[in-house]
Design a binder for these strands. Structure first.
Lengths: 189, 189
DNA sequence: ATAGCCATGTAACCAGTTACATGATTGA
DNA sequence: TCAATCATGTAACTGGTTACATGGCTAT
């Protein structure tokens, strides 16, 4: 559902083709919502049928034509309604957690490898986020207004990765030392 | 896909009816994978057709019959293969993040309300997790072996909620004070 | 009375994934 | 010559949600 509104937000900032929108999904919004180009084209088609977007065809030589989409008045209204609506926290679905939950079954060594692999994946992502963070600060000493909220959501991404790594390292330790005692995160009642 | 394996894990511990399994999904595994009773019944039916589970009917007076499912040898094998397979980190899809990303559009006050509502939701969840944590420690001073991994995954849930609250409070502050300067999470290169 | 628990399911729908398809240009 | 980028899409499938359906027992 939200792909629709993510697209409307992106093209509201600046009219764009499906291809452009797919690119922009990778940076910024891609951190907390991903969409394949197929899904984007499907969604754009649907929104066009429903009158939320319109497009103009730009001819190019040597390359396929671009359909440059922009939001319509109806689209704006729909977007504003969505922005005003309440959201429920997303449902988490994480297969690795199931495997760790059931760690007493199966081969601990294999799970350890998998956990270490995930630590690396999250560390790579963390580094990428931290590099992106620098770009928000590098240009000028004061951040531009319009970059403020994209940056704040990036901070969430950074913390998210850090928290994953911290916990996965704990899991790693527990897999190595089977009998290490754990203290409750909240020590007293 | 993983609902299937979550069900196999649960019934491997102890044979159970669809109803029981739906209950158990709420505690423990429900924290990182949820399934409605409808989905569970559908999945059980499918797995029975494919020979991964079998059931015996228990008649009850006054209540509908229970189908008590247990895992078959084929099911065990399938489960072991899945446990050995690699997983990719789950794709995050969070509509609230999109709204915060686009916070410069729309009404800041309304977004502030929504952010505060989410802080409360996460705080409620955090308290629930912390209460559950106590149950792991209350009974005996040393934790039982079989509860070790379920507890470790609970720790992840606790940290997850804490991290959310921390970040959402930052967002709250930024919504109130539009020009508060933010320091990078990684200060130096 | 009414709500909640016990216990089962089917049908329709929707969002998102995977596979398939085309075709020119540019750089290694 | 091979891979990558630009640029568009369709079709089939799958996992999960929502709506609908039944019906007795128990506690307030």
């Amino acid at each position: 559902m939200s792909v629709k509104f993510a697209l409307l937000i992106l093209m509201d900032k600046e009219p764009a083709s499906g291809y452009d929108l797919a690119q922009r999904f990778n940076r910024g919004i891609g951190q907390f919502w991903q969409a394949s180009h197929q899904q984007i084209y499907q969604q754009l088609k649907k929104m066009h049928e429903q009158g939320f977007v319109q497009f103009t065809v730009q001819k190019q030589q040597g390359k396929p034509d671009r359909k440059v989409y922009e939001i319509t008045a109806a689209g704006e209204q729909d977007l504003n309604e969505w922005l005003a609506a309440q959201e429920k926290p997303p449902t988490v679905r994480d297969a690795l957690l199931i495997k760790i939950y059931a760690a007493s079954r199966g081969d601990p060594q294999r799970l350890l490898n998998e956990v270490q692999r995930h630590i690396q994946l999250h560390e790579t992502q963390l580094v990428a986020h931290l590099q992106e963070e620098q770009q928000f600060f590098s240009a000028n000493k004061t951040m531009q207004r319009k970059l403020r909220w994209p940056y704040i959501t990036l901070r969430r991404g950074i913390r998210y990765e850090q928290e994953w790594i911290e916990w996965l390292k704990e899991v790693q330790i527990c897999l190595v030392d089977d009998s290490l005692p754990l203290k409750p995160l909240r020590p007293s009642l």
